[in-house]
Design a binder for these strands. Structure first.
Lengths: 340, 340
DNA sequence: CTGAAAGCGCTTACAG
DNA sequence: CTGAAAGCGCTTACAG
């Protein structure tokens, strides 16, 4: 059984395809009577517009691309959920792709989306992405891009982010408030804007409270994994340096660190207090439960989609698009790992 | 800058569009020289086929739909990852949609995919789906469907699953092997095939080892959440009934149960042993770490895609499609929560 | 080996 | 208010 076409409706009513097409979309220059008649016939014949033909004719796909570093990831999967739900409400389809934190793969994904002729792109950059030529290429053919979470500061596009510097500052301040005087930091990749800003926030808090900043208390995590957390906790124990608090770039690493520290008989929070970042679910159920920074993910996805959606619409009407940077709030969640 | 078309290549080489089209796809009836010439020109002009036109002409989209109950979910997000990676390798695009464990939403998602004209559908059913008319509708227009994990036994299509009955049996047997004699079960929804089969596995193990089966030791979890785990653990404590072991339908609920039991001063595994299902990451880091059943997710996604892919190809060549049911292995992971 | 023509199913500018 | 015609950019059956 093949799909009903406009042609078939036209034939059945003995009117033209043109009129059917216009009637179905309630064009004002079609008579009410015809509109009703056509819509009834369409209903009866179970007519569904052929997407392929509509796409070709209108040169838009009502589809957007969403590129994230990882799918199996509490934060990013929540973003995906927010994007998909919002897209659905507005008649858009989402193609989800992952870059696996690799800038080369990211380039391929962008190229794929360009070839697929999506209407716009939502992206959280891979941590090692420092050049944006692939994005500029998309922009050169008028493809709107909106970045979220992992952004490139110099890319001229709208952005949906949190204030990582401030959040890093507050996480560190929280440790200070709990009595820590020698605070280490497990930072993320050197090229990730998130991790750069959180690091700056950490430094700023130390400065402001006249605590010594010592580069050797900053541990560098190339990767956001449990194992890396354990590894760096081991390193820290080898040069403990009197450390009594750690601000960790992300919850998963903090959970690894806690596990390792416990294995070495360190008491948390008595010996070392720890605060993570992201408020992943698992942080609330481990022992001790992990203090962290709550960061919007689902909402970020929704807002990112809506930002892109509004640019898409302005674009269609040839209106000027003003890029905006939306900053979402974060919040310190105090749990057992930083009990005063 | 608009995209290069076949027309433009043809014009630039002073040959026909037909020949360009055939040359680009290396048709044997085009001379080698022409093929080279055309490909060089295409490269030079950065030609990319217009997907919309190709779709309309070939009546296929090289796109499949993937419907899952939840995206923010360790198991399903891993499946998504497997599907997307495999699709990418084979030139397919994936539209991911979620049913939110609601059969009405699931119907809408399927309808959406039909309208979008995907080439095939991969689905894990919502737990409350007991009628399959929406799927039959897709099949009626020759849309291949492959089910995975959450299936409907009576739907005539290929399936990729685990042996839930056997896995449930082995999980229960593991508790018995650890010395448990009064084993409760936290089961999932009554209409979910997974949960039905795991329940039967539980019963079978009790029978086989001559342990009393008591319906009042079966707790019904309508929803796969942490809170429901806590709630049912509370219920169990009210009618403990001598229970010294619990087989829980899924890790998330088991983690909730452990948390609640600990809060009530129950020692795990000394007082009650617990085994979950799914081997979620968090199960390995909570205290005590949770014994569980390892279940393939990423691999299941890959295999599900490949099964659909091969049906798609057979379909194109008008070959008969034989439905198959692929059963993937599971494995007991013994951790602290069931130490003997 | 090459190409003219038809057609996939729509939308829209234009004529009446 | 209605409709004939062109065209979006391809692919393919057919002719030469």
């Amino acid at each position: 059984m093949s799909r009903t076409t406009l042609q078939q409706i036209a034939l059945s009513l003995d009117i033209s395809v043109t009129t059917v097409s216009k009637a179905l979309r309630s064009y004002p220059d079609v008579s009410k009577k015809t509109i009703e008649k056509v819509k009834a016939a369409a209903e009866l014949l179970n007519y569904k517009p052929n997407t392929f033909a509509v796409n070709l004719r209108t040169q838009e796909s009502k589809t957007i691309g969403l590129v994230i570093p990882e799918i199996v990831h509490q934060f990013f999967s929540s973003v995906v959920k927010g994007v998909i739900e919002e897209a659905e409400k507005n008649g858009y389809t989402v193609i989800v792709l992952q870059s696996s934190q690799n800038t080369e793969i990211e380039k391929k994904r962008i190229e794929f989306l360009i070839n697929k002729q999506v209407d716009g792109i939502l992206i959280a950059l891979a941590d090692d992405t420092v050049e944006y030529y692939h994005l500029f290429e998309a922009q050169a053919i008028d493809l709107p891009i909106v970045m979220f979470d992992k952004i490139g500061k110099t890319v001229p596009c709208s952005k949906v982010i949190i204030d990582d510097l401030r959040a890093g500052y507050e996480a560190t301040k929280h440790l200070i408030d709990c009595g820590c005087t020698k605070i280490a930091h497990f930072r993320g990749p050197l090229t990730s804007q998130n991790s750069i800003d959180r690091y700056h926030g950490y430094k700023k808090a130390l400065e402001e409270y006249n605590l010594e900043f010592d580069e050797s208390n900053v541990y560098h995590c190339k990767e956001m994994s449990f194992e890396i957390g354990k590894e760096n906790a081991r390193k820290l124990l080898n040069h403990r340096n009197g450390v009594d608090g750690i601000f960790v770039n992300t919850d998963m690493i903090a959970v690894g660190a806690i596990t390792e520290l416990k294995e070495h008989g360190i008491n948390i929070p008595e010996d070392i207090r720890i605060i993570g970042f992201g408020n992943w679910f698992l942080s609330s159920v481990i022992t001790p439960s992990l203090s962290t920074v709550e960061q919007p993910s689902y909402t970020m996805g929704k807002i990112a989609f809506n930002t892109l959606f509004s640019e898409l619409n302005k674009h269609k009407e040839n209106q000027h698009v003003e890029h905006e940077t939306i900053i979402l709030p974060t919040e310190i969640i105090a749990r057992e790992s930083t009990l005063a």
